[in-house]
Design a protein around this nucleic acid. Structure first.
Length: 884
RNA sequence: GGGGGGUUAGCUCAGUGGGAGAGCUCCUGCCUUACAAGCAGGCUGUCGUGGGUUCAAAUCCCUCACCCCCCA
C-alpha cells in the first residue's frame, strides 16, 4: 500500500460541504421503502419559514440526526421528513414591516397582491433555512420536504376542518377571545404569555342613582369603565346585601347600572365591590353570561376606543385613554385612591403587545372529546415521554383543556373553507370551492375572510407530510412515526394537538416516543434571546469549529430532561475530539507505506488487539443502550472514552512499537488489524460526528462505500475478551505506577530508568509483561526492565511501588528524599488501614452478612484481600526504607 | 394557589442503593515527530440543610432553605 497523506491539521471546511453534497446527490437520505424491516420515521418539527436557525434548532436537529443515522445504519428504512411551516402571524409581520419601510400598509396592496408578495418572501427565506440545516449535517430526505401551505398539506387542512365540522367539533360563535391589537387578530389561549408587571389599583367612587351617597370599586383598568354593565358583590357579604338590586351611576358616562350579587367576587379584595365589564374581562364575561347582562364592547379592532364611549375618549388608544380617564376621575372627585399593584398582564407570544380580551365572532374547535382520547392513549402506554416527567405537563393540560380558537384575522394562511350566500344567508362548509349557493343557487357567495391558526396545519404534520388524506404508499409504510424530538415549550401547542388529530383522523397515535429536549441557555442560565444578544449562531459555530464539533458537543451535553448551558468556548470540546480523530488517522495512514492488507485471523490477535476489540465491542453496547434509551450524553461519552482513552492513548501507542518489528508478515497483520479497528470506530462514531467519520472512512484502504450506509457495529459475544481486559488493566496499573513515581520525583523523560518487576504468583499479566518488555519499557521509559518473581532487590538503590499483585522497583536512589518517600508510604498505609477497617466492619456485621446480596459480600472480600496486600507490601517497603 | 425541576470539584454538568465521576480550569514536567487543539502526572468535594428508612443513602422517604420553569 501507499501511505495516505492527510492535511497536517484538521480543517472541517475542506470537506464538510463536499460530503453533504455527495450524500444528497447519491440519495443517502432516502430510505428504501421496499426494504424489509420496521421503518424508523421522524418528522422534523417544522421551523418557521421566515425564521433563522438558532441553537435550539441545532440541538433538536442534531439529536434527530443521531437517531436517524443510527437506525439507518442498523438497517432499518429510516425516513426523516424535513419541512417548514408558514408561521401566519410571524410571516405576515415580516412582510408588513418590509412594506412599512416603503411607507405602505398591507391594505394598500390588497389581499391578493399581499399574499403574492408573502410567497416571494417565503421563497427567499426558505433557501436560508434549508441551507442552514444542510450546514449542520441534517440527514433528512429533501425529496420529501413539505411546507404547511403547499398543495397537499392545504388539502389536509381543508379535509380536517370539514370533517370536524361534520362531526360537530368545529363551531362558530361570538365569544370573548384574546386579541392582539398589533397583529390585528385573535389568538388561542395558549398563545398568550402572562407577565407579572407593576400597575396601579384605582379606587373609584360610583354615586348611587338616588343621590344618597357613593360606593367604591377597585380596578386596574379604569378606561374599561365605559363597558361596565353592573357592579357585583358577594352574596354572602353582609356589608352590601341591602344594596343588591339598587343602581349606581357610571361617572364620566352618566349611565345607570345595577348592583348584582355573584359568588365569584372576593370579599377580601379591595372594597369587595367589583365593576363588571363582560366584553373586556374573562371573569366578567362569565358573570355576564350568568346574569344575562349586556356585553358592551368599547374597542375597535385596532385597539382604540370606539363609539360606545363618550366622544372625548373615542379613537384614543388604551394607554392614552387610561391617562385621560384617571385625570377626569380626579377632577370630577371620583378617584379616592390609588395604590401600587402588581398583576399578570397577557402579552402576544409573537409581538409582546398587551392582549385585549375582545368580544368577536370566531371559529372554535371543541376539544374535550379529543383530549379525553389523547389522555387515554397516554394512560394505555401508547405514548412515552422522555423524560417521563413531561407526562405531567401533558396530562394536566389535557385535563383542563378549553376550546381552541382557530380563526385568525390575517391574510397569510389557509383561508377558512366556509362560504356565505349573500342572498339567502346560507353557510356552506366545503371540501371543494363552491361556485353557487347550495340552497338558493345564487352565485353571490363570499368566502370567510379569516384564515386558520398555523397550528391547525401543524397538528396534522406527522401524516399530512406523508400524503394524508390520500392513502399514499408513504403513509402506509412510514406512519405512525417512531420518535418526535421537540422542546417543552410546544407540548401544548403542538405535541398534544398532533396526538389528538392523529387519533381523530387516523385512529392511532402519531408517534410512540416523545423526546423533550432541554432549552439551550447561556452560561448564566438565561434563555438565549435576540433582545439580550446572548444567542449563539449555529452557523458561526460551524464556521469557527466545524459542524462535527457542534454536533458532538451538543450530544455530549444533552442529558435527558436537562437544559443545556453553553457559550462559544463549549464547542472546543467537540473540536478537540474531531481533531484527535483526524490526527490519529493521519498517523496510521502515514504508516501504510510498503505494507499489505491481509485477512484478519482471530487466532493471530495479540493481547492488545483483543483488548481493543473488546473495548470497541463494549462501547458498541454502551452506545446502543444510550441511543435507544435517548441518553445522548452517554452515547457521546462512550465514543469519547473508547476513542481517546483506549484507542489513542494505549492502542495506537502500542501500535507504534509493534510496527517497528522487522517481521514483515507481522507488520502487515498489525496494520490490517489497526485499520479494521479504525474503520469500526468510524462506523461507531458516525451518528455523533458524521462528516469527519465519512471523510476518514473514505480514505481508509480497507473500506468500500460510505460510512453513512455501512452497518452499525453491534455487540458480539465472541469479542468479549475479558481475559485480555484483565491483563491490560494490570499492565496499565503497572505503567501508571512507574509514571506516577517518575512525575512525583520530577525525573525527566530523557532519563531512562532501570526497573525490576516482581509479580506475585497469581499476577495475571506476568506473561504479557515478560513477552512485551520492549513495549512496557517504552510506556514507562525504562532502559532496562527485569521481570523476576523472586527478586530480592536492594532498596538502597531502588524505590518500591506497590500494585495489586505486583511490586516494581525503580532504581532512582539518587533522585529521592528518603524521608518524604517514607511519609508518602505512611500516608498510604493509613488510608489503606482505614479502608480495611471499614471493609472488616462490614464483613463482621452479622446483619450485613445475612442481608446483603452475595455480590456485595464477595466484593467486600475482594477489597479485604486487596487492602491487606497493600498494607503488607507498604509495611515491608517502609521497613526497608527506614533501614537505610 | 397548583404542578414540575434544580442544588455533586473553581466553572458546566453526568451519576438512582454497595469503594465519589467527566470536560474545562488550575498546578508540575514534557515540542517523546499523529495531534501543544497535544502527552504524562497531580490538586480540589460536609454530594444544599435537618431528620427518617436500610446491614448499607449522593442515590429512597419527609422537613426546611435558596434558585428556575410551567399552569391558574
Amino acid at each position: 500500500m501507499k501511505a495516505v497523506e492527510l492535511e497536517k491539521s484538521y480543517n472541517p471546511k475542506d470537506f464538510e460541504d463536499r460530503i453533504y453534497a455527495d450524500w444528497k446527490e447519491h440519495g443517502c437520505f432516502q430510505p428504501d421503502a421496499e426494504a424489509p424491516g420496521e421503518p424508523f420515521t421522524v418528522v422534523m418539527p417544522p421551523p418557521n419559514v421566515t425564521g433563522i436557525l438558532h441553537m435550539g434548532h441545532a440541538l433538536n436537529n442534531q439529536l434527530q440526526d443521531t437517531l436517524v443515522r443510527y437506525h439507518r445504519m442498523c438497517g432499518r428504512p429510516a425516513l426523516w421528513v424535513p419541512g417548514t411551516d408558514h408561521a401566519g402571524i410571524a410571516t405576515q409581520n415580516v412582510v408588513e414591516r418590509q412594506l412599512a419601510a416603503k411607507g405602505l400598509r398591507r391594505q394598500d396592496l390588497g389581499r391578493e397582491k399581499f399574499v403574492e408578495e408573502t410567497w416571494k418572501v417565503k421563497e427567499r427565506h426558505h433557501a436560508i433555512i434549508s441551507q442552514q440545516l444542510e450546514k449542520i449535517g441534517s440527514s433528512c430526505d429533501w425529496t420529501r420536504e413539505r411546507f404547511t401551505m403547499d398543495e397537499g398539506l392545504s388539502q389536509a387542512v381543508r379535509e380536517s376542518f370539514v370533517t370536524l365540522y361534520e362531526r360537530g367539533l368545529v363551531y362558530k360563535g361570538n365569544y370573548l377571545v384574546n386579541y392582539c391589537t398589533h397583529c390585528g387578530t385573535a389568538l388561542a389561549d395558549d398563545e398568550v404569555e402572562y407577565k407579572n408587571l407593576p400597575g396601579k389599583l384605582y379606587q373609584v367612587q360610583y354615586p348611587y342613582a338616588d343621590g344618597s351617597g357613593n360606593i367604591t370599586v377597585a380596578t386596574t383598568r379604569p378606561e374599561t369603565m365605559f363597558g361596565d354593565v353592573a357592579v357585583a358583590v358577594n352574596p354572602a357579604d353582609e356589608r352590601y346585601a341591602h344594596l343588591v338590586g339598587t343602581f349606581v351611576i357610571l361617572p364620566l358616562a352618566n349611565k345607570r347600572i345595577p348592583i348584582i350579587a355573584d359568588s365569584y367576587v372576593d370579599m377580601e379584595f379591595g372594597t369587595g365591590m367589583v365593576k363588571i365589564t363582560p366584553a373586556h374581562d374573562p371573569n366578567d364575561w362569565e358573570i355576564g353570561r350568568r346574569h344575562d347582562l349586556e356585553m358592551v364592547n368599547i374597542l375597535n379592532a385596532d385597539g382604540t376606543l370606539n363609539d360606545a364611549v363618550p366622544e372625548v375618549y373615542r379613537n384614543m388608544d388604551v394607554t392614552s385613554a387610561r391617562k385621560l380617564v384617571v385625570a377626569d376621575l380626579v377632577s370630577g372627585g371620583y378617584l379616592v385612591g390609588q395604590t401600587d399593584h402588581n398583576h399578570d398582564v397577557g402579552h402576544c407570544y409573537r409581538c409582546s403587545t398587551v392582549i385585549e380580551p375582545y368580544l368577536s365572532e370566531q371559529w372554535f374547535v371543541s376539544m374535550k372529546g379529543m383530549a379525553d382520547k389523547a389522555l387515554g392513549a397516554w394512560k394505555d402506554g401508547k405514548i412515552v415521554f422522555y423524560a417521563k416527567r413531561w407526562e405531567n405537563t401533558y396530562s394536566h393540560w389535557l385535563e383542563n383543556i378549553r376550546d381552541w380558537c382557530i380563526s385568525r384575522q390575517l391574510w397569510w394562511g389557509h383561508r377558512i373553507p366556509v362560504w356565505y350566500c349573500q342572498d339567502c344567508g346560507q353557510m356552506m362548509v366545503e371540501r371543494k370551492d363552491p361556485t353557487s349557493c347550495n340552497k338558493c343557487g345564487s352565485s353571490t357567495i363570499l368566502q370567510d375572510t379569516d384564515v386558520l391558526d398555523t397550528w391547525f396545519s401543524s397538528w396534522l404534520w406527522p401524516f399530512s407530510t406523508l400524503g394524508w388524506p390520500e392513502s399514499t404508499p408513504d403513509l402506509k409504510r412510514f406512519f405512525p412515526t417512531s420518535t418526535l424530538v421537540t422542546g417543552y415549550d410546544i407540548i401544548f401547542f403542538w405535541v398534544s394537538r398532533m396526538i389528538m388529530a392523529s387519533l381523530e383522523f387516523l385512529g392511532e397515535v402519531p408517534f410512540r416516543d416523545i423526546y423533550i429536549t432541554g432549552l439551550v441557555r447561556d452560561k448564566q442560565g438565561r434563555k438565549m434571546s435576540k433582545s439580550l444578544g446572548n444567542g449563539i449562531d449555529p452557523l458561526e459555530v460551524v464556521d469557527l469549529y466545524g459542524a462535527d464539533a457542534m454536533k458532538f458537543t451538543l450530544c455530549y451535553m444533552a442529558a435527558q430532561g436537562q437544559d443545556i448551558l453553553i457559550d462559544m468556548e463549549s464547542f472546543k470540546l467537540g473540536s478537540r475530539f474531531a481533531n484527535k480523530m483526524w490526527n490519529a488517522t493521519r498517523f496510521l495512514l502515514m504508516n501504510l507505506e510498503g505494507k499489505e492488507l491481509v485477512p484478519i485471523v482471530d487466532s493471530d490477535l495479540n493481547i492488545m488487539d483483543r483488548w481493543m476489540y473488546r473495548q470497541v465491542n463494549e462501547a458498541a453496547s454502551r452506545v446502543k443502550a444510550a441511543i435507544e434509551g435517548y441518553r445522548f450524553n452517554d452515547g457521546a461519552q462512550a465514543i469519547y472514552d473508547v476513542f481517546w482513552n483506549d484507542f489513542c492513548d494505549w492502542y495506537v501507542e502500542a501500535t507504534k512499537h509493534a510496527l517497528a518489528t522487522k517481521d514483515e508478515a507481522e507488520r502487515n497483520r498489525q496494520v490490517s488489524v489497526m485499520l479494521d479497528l479504525l474503520a469500526e470506530l468510524m462506523r461507531l462514531m458516525h451518528p455523533f460526528v458524521s462528516f469527519i467519520t465519512e471523510e476518514i472512512y473514505g480514505k481508509l484502504p480497507n473500506t468500500t462505500g460510505r460510512v453513512i450506509d455501512a452497518p452499525y457495529p453491534s455487540y458480539r459475544e465472541e469479542r468479549n475478551h475479558d481475559d485480555a481486559k484483565a491483563i491490560v488493566d494490570a499492565m496499565q496499573e503497572l505503567v501508571r505506577g512507574v509514571r506516577s513515581l517518575r512525575s512525583e520525583l520530577q525525573i525527566p523523560n530523557e532519563r531512562k530508568l532501570q526497573i525490576v518487576f516482581r509479580p506475585d504468583a497469581a499476577f495475571v499479566a506476568t506473561g504479557f509483561v515478560s513477552e512485551h518488555v520492549g513495549l512496557i519499557s517504552t510506556f514507562v521509559g525504562a532502559s532496562q526492565l527485569v521481570v523476576d518473581a523472586h527478586a530480592e532487590t536492594s532498596v538502597a538503590k531502588a524505590i518500591p511501588v506497590a500494585g495489586h499483585g505486583f511490586e516494581v522497583f525503580v532504581f532512582v536512589r539518587d533522585a529521592i528524599d528518603v524521608d518524604s518517600e517514607i511519609r508518602k508510604i505512611e500516608i498510604d498505609l493509613e488510608r489503606n488501614a482505614k479502608s480495611l477497617e471499614g471493609t472488616l466492619r462490614k464483613l463482621s456485621n452479622e446483619q450485613f452478612m445475612s442481608n446483603a446480596k452475595q455480590e456485595a459480600i464477595d466484593k467486600e472480600r475482594g477489597k479485604q484481600a486487596e487492602f491487606e496486600e497493600k498494607l503488607e507490601k507498604g509495611r515491608k517497603h517502609l521497613t526497608l526504607l527506614r533501614s537505610l
